[in-house]
Computed example of a mutant assay.
Amino acid sequence: MQKTVLVPYAHLPRAHHDRHVLTSTVDVCGTAHWLLAERAPQPGGDVRSFGALVVSVDPGGNVELTELSAVRARWPHLDRLPDGGFVVAATRARRYEDANQVQVFDALGRETSSFSVGDAIEHLLVDEAGCMWVGHFDENPVGIRCWSAAGRLAWTSDDAHIPGLFDCYALNVSGTTAWACPYTDFPLVEIRPDRTDRPVRVWANCVRGAKAVAVHGERVAFYGGYGEERDRLAYGEISETSVEPTDAGLLTLSDGSGPGRRRVVGRGSRIYVQAEPFTTWGVFNLSS
């Protein structure tokens, strides 16, 4: 089976390797961010706020540090806002006061607001307009929602007629457009809330279990799957009503092995993959 090797993309500077990586992401502009704490969170016990450091590495390799005060989420999601601030969200809302689940920080690392988006966050990705796209997993099967940075619900999949939307397995946000591939039916879904004629388009898809999706024109790539297809990279062409499979292979590290435990972020034509110990991002680009 053909292997596609991840291209090295961004590295956490070695000076910060002594801290624990709480989470990491790549934003809509292509800058990689790591949220670091002095030590790993411990399960159970009281939830106490703590100071955290965001290390940002832009596509040119420039490094920026932002100290965040009074972070409350021990198992967080992170992304950057267009004004230079950050959003940090707790995956599980039920362990926190609802009003405190999502924290918004300004560019100086000061908390400016907090609100709730609901339990069981699978993905949280900020678009170029500063809206937060949230996909939930099946312990809170509310689908996909879009929120303003002020905590206002801007769009919801409730009436979007997306088949089998029970768990948002894959979410890709680029520009102000979102793409998804949700469990149980795994359709390819395009969401453009600002489009008045067809804000949501759905294509039937036979690729099951993908954890990330990339789109470039009429071409699409699905990454991940069940069991032995964990490292699968499946290609397809978007037709009028469905995604037609064209090829499949494996997405690997430079040594040809699978990434093992990993994080994935979909942004347009790119799928970013971060393997344990979560200090390095690699990228697959469908447009290359």
Rank of each mutant, 00 (worst) to 15 (best):
G236F: 04
R195P: 01
P41N: 07
G143R: 10
T25N: 05
I238G: 05
I144G: 00
E228L: 14
T156I: 12
A170M: 08
D197H: 14
E276F: 13
F278W: 09
R232N: 11
H20A: 09
T177A: 12
P13S: 15
C206G: 14
V265H: 00
P13E: 08
R195V: 14
Y96P: 00
G236W: 02
D79M: 08
P193L: 04
G109I: 09
Y183D: 04
A107H: 13
L250Y: 12
R110N: 13
E190A: 08
T196N: 12
G109A: 13
L6P: 00
F222L: 11
R263N: 07
H17K: 10
N172K: 08
A160L: 09
A129C: 12
T31V: 04
S157K: 02
A32D: 02
A234F: 01
P259Q: 04
Y96Q: 08
V117Y: 06
L125G: 00
A210W: 01
L165M: 06
V104S: 06
R74V: 07
C29A: 15
M132S: 00
Y223D: 02
E128H: 12
L124K: 02
R39M: 07
D231Q: 06
L22Y: 00
A129F: 15
C29W: 15
H11N: 15
A32W: 02
R230E: 05
G258E: 03
H11E: 13
R230P: 04
D127H: 08
A15N: 15
S69R: 13
V28S: 13
G44T: 11
L125C: 12
N285Q: 13
A52K: 00
F278K: 03
V55F: 14
L124C: 10
L81W: 01
G44M: 08
E38T: 06
W34S: 00
C206K: 07
Q42C: 15
V264W: 00
A248T: 08
T241P: 12
G51T: 05
V273H: 01
L250W: 05
V5M: 10
T241M: 09
I121A: 00
L53V: 10
T184A: 15
P187I: 02
D119I: 03
E218N: 10
D58L: 02
P82G: 07
L108Q: 13
R232M: 10
Y226K: 11
H161F: 11
A150K: 14
L36C: 04
F105R: 03
M1Y: 12
S116Y: 07
L188E: 01
Q101V: 04
V142H: 04
D58N: 14
P76C: 03
L108H: 15
F50H: 06
R267N: 05
E64V: 12
H161T: 14
H136P: 11
A52S: 10
G268M: 09
R192L: 11
L81N: 06
R14L: 12
E276S: 12
P13W: 11
D27R: 03
V126K: 01
V87Y: 00
V57M: 04
L36Q: 01
F166R: 09
G130T: 03
G217L: 09
P245F: 03
S257D: 13
W179D: 04
D127C: 06
D79F: 02
W147C: 00
G60S: 10
V207Y: 05
A212P: 01
Y272N: 01
T177E: 07
S287R: 15
L153F: 11
S257Y: 15
Y226C: 07
C206L: 11
L68Y: 03
G135D: 03
A160S: 08
V202P: 02
